[in-house]
Design a protein around this nucleic acid. Structure first.
Lengths: 143, 143
DNA sequence: CGTTTTTACTTCGAGACTTGAAGTTGTTAC
DNA sequence: GTAACAACTTCAAGTCTCGAAGTAAAAACG
């Protein structure tokens, strides 16, 4: 009973994610990005201090070698730049270039416009964000 | 303004999906499954009539060659069986084996237990499913 | 009917992603 | 000062995904 409600929620969340990604395919291709590179670009907020590779790997739920691979692509496309962290020279700080900021904006705008969520009204959206946020908080809390 | 609420919703949706998958990794490995094969198993509901390959490709948002690849793995693991559709001999009907049903249950149970949504109470869950369902409906509706 | 077009599926080959193992460089702990 | 650890990269192997091409069956057409 509650079980099937939970399953409906998990399935709907999954489906919404897949559908958004599907619709974004064309935009990503236009920008010369793949899902992996686009996601990496997304999680680098130009308004915040440049994150380290380790921090980015956490955000992307991927491992270090994978991130190096993705960052090499973004670097060769001229969208990000790596520099040594003055505070810990083992670390690399990753910052968006001007081009990177531009492309990131394009991707995010497209994703928001294409997401099925875009059709919800503000009340529903606020409620939805509240519920999703609650789930994420509870997930972080101790068992 | 509304923009940032929408972005929060899209990001939270994505993050919840990634986090659930992350936690499921161990279970999938135990069952000898990958994400792709597990997802394929999930969308074959044993309570319904066996779907065709085409129908499955739609559900998985993947193309035909990819589905063939995934189904070959599930078939060689003895989890599904393909048979010609008597109504249209071009089509293949895909059905779970007894083992397939067992493994599918294990995966779904684990996913539901590990999903951050599992910590929401029934009221919140009902509300959430309603909002997610609304978004999916609106997405299907005409522009 | 018989031919043409379309549809469902598979195979193949190339490209892209992901991962573990191993190595480099720099930091921390003793 | 040396041993342990941490951040990152490179490399090689495995997996996933896709387009192109091929097969078989159904549908459309005259």
């Amino acid at each position: 009973m509650t079980e099937s409600i939970l399953e409906a929620a998990v399935v709907a969340n999954h489906e919404l994610f897949l559908r958004t990604n599907d619709r974004l395919t064309a935009t990503l291709a236009e920008q010369g990005l793949t899902q992996a590179t686009a996601h990496a670009l997304w999680v680098i907020d130009p308004a915040e201090a440049p994150p380290t590779m380790k921090e980015l790997a956490d955000r992307l739920h991927c491992n270090a070698p994978n991130l190096s691979f993705v960052m090499n692509q973004l670097t060769s496309r001229g969208l990000v730049e790596r520099s040594a962290d003055p505070a810990d020279r083992r670390s690399r700080l990753v910052a968006l270039t001007d081009d990177g900021r531009r492309v990131r904006s394009v991707v995010i705008e497209a994703a928001l416009a294409l997401s099925p969520f875009a059709r919800l009204d503000t009340d529903d959206l606020l409620h939805l964000v509240s519920l999703l946020g609650k789930a994420l908080e509870l997930a972080a809390a101790p068992a």
